[in-house]
């Protein structure tokens, strides 16, 4: 009896593997995650920001979050500690010393970066997160089960969770003012900034302008557009007058945060291929063992 050759086995295995890989590439059940060439971006010029926190007020107002009156935002004592966006403030501004001009500190606005390859969309097990054509990463509160995988996955630690709510807590983060931009309005923070430290426009154009500014005012900036390549590129990008590491920006490579893990995970779990493949392999082994016994 002819032995099943090693070549034949490898062929079967390769076929199974190919099916898995093929399916993972064309996984249809995944959430909406488009990378439109028309997606928008924002350039945050930290050398222009004056730390007035108008954006914080505008953001809260636009999202119906409770806010103290605008007059209180002039209080500079909030800069004594580093703040992070939370469920009550989707964007915050932090202050960092300026080594060359001690009295003109740098201010860095923090909010969701709206990644081109979002880890939150990838990590969300119920497909509540999605990246829209206009670049915004939004989420469906009705789908969200509160697993907080998005919080763990985000390389910028942006999504926050209403821990204080016992009933029906929600995930909160900057939504790039999705409703406003749908109505052709600017994001609330961009609209409110008195010095236009935030420049809103198509992402490609924003990158071009960032580089143009660096070329024109070389002394003003460090030679880096943060977010152009970080984590595979982000919608929000920054220019700064000192090293980004000093401004507490995470040091990230150019590969997308979900990257390899997403390819493997989505590949393995798509269309129940792994169990089918597993049983197919087990079946093959049984068949081979059986034919070998018969041949003996």
């Amino acid at each position: 009896m002819k032995q099943p050759s090693r070549r034949a086995f490898l062929k079967t295995a390769a076929l199974a593997g190919g099916t898995v890989a093929g399916l993972s590439a064309t996984a249809k059940a995944g959430p909406k995650n488009v990378l439109s060439p028309d997606r928008n971006g924002v350039l945050v010029d930290t050398t222009v920001c004056i730390g007035c926190r108008s954006c914080e007020y505008a953001c809260r107002t636009a999202h119906g979050l409770p806010t103290p009156p605008l007059e209180t935002y002039g209080d500079k004592t909030v800069f004594k500690e580093m703040r992070r966006p939370n469920t009550g403030a989707l964007t915050v501004v932090n202050q960092y010393p300026n080594p060359t001009k001690s009295d003109l500190p740098y201010y860095v606005k923090v909010q969701c970066m709206h990644c081109d390859h979002p880890a939150c969309v990838s990590a969300c097990i119920v497909g509540a997160f999605s990246k829209q054509e206009n670049g915004a990463i939004i989420w469906d509160t009705d789908k969200c089960i509160g697993c907080r995988y998005c919080m763990a996955a985000c390389p910028f630690q942006i999504p926050s969770f209403e821990y204080e709510k016992a009933l029906n807590p929600e995930i909160r983060k900057c939504d790039f003012c999705y409703t406003r931009t749908q109505e052709n309005k600017l994001p609330a923070c961009v609209d409110a900034c008195p010095v236009e430290a935030l420049t809103f426009g198509p992402r490609e154009e924003v990158v071009r302008i960032a580089k143009q500014r660096m070329a024109t005012y070389g002394n003003r900036y460090v030679n880096h557009v943060y977010g152009e390549l970080e984590a595979g590129g982000t919608g929000w990008m920054y220019l700064a007058g000192r090293d980004f590491a000093d401004l507490k920006f995470p040091k990230l490579g150019a590969s997308p945060a979900p990257g390899v893990s997403e390819a493997i995970q989505h590949g393995i779990f798509a269309y129940f291929v792994p169990p089918v493949a597993l049983y197919a392999i087990l079946g093959a082994i049984m068949w081979m063992t059986k034919t070998r016994e018969e041949g003996a």
Partner: peptide
């Protein structure tokens, strides 16, 4: 405002 940062919302 680059110089006149004493400006506040008040």
């Amino acid at each position: 405002m680059d110089c006149h940062r004493q400006w506040t919302h008040s």
